[in-house]
Design a protein around this nucleic acid. Sequence first.
DNA 1: GTTAGCACTCAATAGACGTGAGTGCTAAAA
DNA 2: TTTTAGCACTCACGTCTATTGAGTGCTAAC
Lengths: 347, 347
Amino acid sequence: MELTERKLRILQAIIDEYMGTAEPVGSRAISKKNNLGLSSATIRNEMADLEEMGFLIQPHTSAGRVPSDVAYRYYVNSMMKRYKIGVKTIVQLQNAMEQKISQLDSIIKKASHITSALTDYTAFITTPDVTGNYIKKCEIVSLSGGCSLLIIVTQAGIVKNKILTLSLDDNSAAILGEIINKTLCGLCANDITFDKIQSMQSEISERLNLSPKALINILDFIYDAVEELDDTDIYIENAKSILKYNDIEKAQKMFTFLEDKKNLKNLIKGDSNGKVNIKIGSENQVEELKDCSLVSVNYSLNNKTAGQLGVIGPKRMNYAKVVASLDCISEHIDKILYQLYIGESEE
Amino acid sequence: MELTERKLRILQAIIDEYMGTAEPVGSRAISKKNNLGLSSATIRNEMADLEEMGFLIQPHTSAGRVPSDVAYRYYVNSMMKRYKIGVKTIVQLQNAMEQKISQLDSIIKKASHITSALTDYTAFITTPDVTGNYIKKCEIVSLSGGCSLLIIVTQAGIVKNKILTLSLDDNSAAILGEIINKTLCGLCANDITFDKIQSMQSEISERLNLSPKALINILDFIYDAVEELDDTDIYIENAKSILKYNDIEKAQKMFTFLEDKKNLKNLIKGDSNGKVNIKIGSENQVEELKDCSLVSVNYSLNNKTAGQLGVIGPKRMNYAKVVASLDCISEHIDKILYQLYIGESEE
DNA sequence: GTTAGCACTCAATAGACGTGAGTGCTAAAA
DNA sequence: TTTTAGCACTCACGTCTATTGAGTGCTAAC
């Protein structure tokens, strides 16, 4: 059967209506509200066809029809109109984002907050993947307990710090810091080879009088810190909005799913090719999300995808608006990250 | 009317029963299950008395009775038996806590995780308030964009870092760092007076050729970072458990309440006197929590209350177990913080 | 090809009703 | 005086049974 122009218009009308009301939509409603100039009976016939073609689902005989995943997919691919974000919203967005650019964390948190505020759905955002980011400075600070603190700063301003339960006086700390700096500065996490660690080890044992155990301890520890450099985190905001479109049991399952951030990370892992990714219902391979849609966009740093942000909402979400909002926000993030990490002047 | 021994025993039985079933408990159930040697009629009479005295509430005429806030309060103050935590649990706890002691954040997160796991309720924990903690080291690192990074480390190992949109070459960064270090090291946030900032200002303008605007910028910025040193944060874990004992609307309100962490902070602010704090139902001044109880304990550093952890759960929670669990966890935190920040050797 | 008309379906709502867990009161027993 | 058996009463809850109404599919006429 062919998907005629008229069928399309009817499908569009049904999707529009359903997005607004979340109730199965009947033929009469369509024939009344939209001036297609067709009676409910005709629309009924077309709807029967659309159902046969897999675009509509009837919850039960005497109910209206509901768009299927296939319908949403078709809508998203071919029918969706561009949504224009209001100037007022953009200005608000700019103001909100530009307030807190002194810390990467704040930017990311702010962005997820804005995403959820703009769409009213659960938002998520990953911290930028800064693989390839080299170490700019290391520092060892001796603390008041029997502890020392290792700080590693990358050229992009990522700071990792770890407490080491090893007592060092200020002088040894300075020496250790010097050695670490000499070895690691200018390297990315990937560049740090066994050789380099080994040469560092020998230099440390030459210049500082440490027990073998303490030495191993230090190296282990540096290794851990370096490993962590490339870790990305994921923030989830406004999870409570799940309660709005799910019953309590499904909501509970969703919360459990979102609790382990690895789940969501895995889910969006492969989505960094295109700019916008939309996964509708069972297109998400995960049972818990089969009644939801997941829309994500990439944001980038240095012309390379650095992370993703998106929303999780009901399948009947306003995709056009969500996509436009995400686009807009990701652009802002791009801009801010550029300012922050690349700047006008190349070093 | 007097609260006789027998009335007490009946009250205890009702509370016990209600904690288990969450259903209004009737006279017959009490007379059967507990071997008080009394008929349901007698118990009925006593229950009527207890209701008149404010300890019991009848949801409707033909229902059993439910303990009132007053009853819970009485129970908690005078009737509650000591709960003994199993050795197995303690061992698990020790193992879990001792794994991640290299970062303050991890300890705090772990602790809240364990709290919610042990009690199965929503857990919260504040980061330690380290007021009085002096600055050990400051550092300025110039980054690849037109930015610099300020890092402040306290003697307790708290690290604050902020990105400053000001381009500095490595040399100027070093000088600026030196000046800041000279001025701020050894001071707590409170000690940093206007005088000190001013003297720092004049030294910076002497030794570095900066525009007045950039200078103001730097000082503002240092000021901000120092302000942040004393900030405490609060982690909330397992908020989803709220769904278990609340209807969807109340849950939504609770989520909204918990979303703004200031709310919870305010709520527990005054509770740092005693070791354990229990607030039952409307004893929490907040509308959203009038069906919940909030149990918190303090943990300390250096013999001074440093923070709080606790749970939010239904009024019919197992207070004895919750209190015992919190006690146990806070003790562990105390121990770990001691190890981390005080150590065996005084510096 | 379109539409008016009609019989049909079925979820949702409301009312009727029985059930049972619980009560309070009273009078007899201890 | 205290306790208890007994009984009438209450009321949420589940079941059953219309009733309603939104929606359908089919058919015959336009």
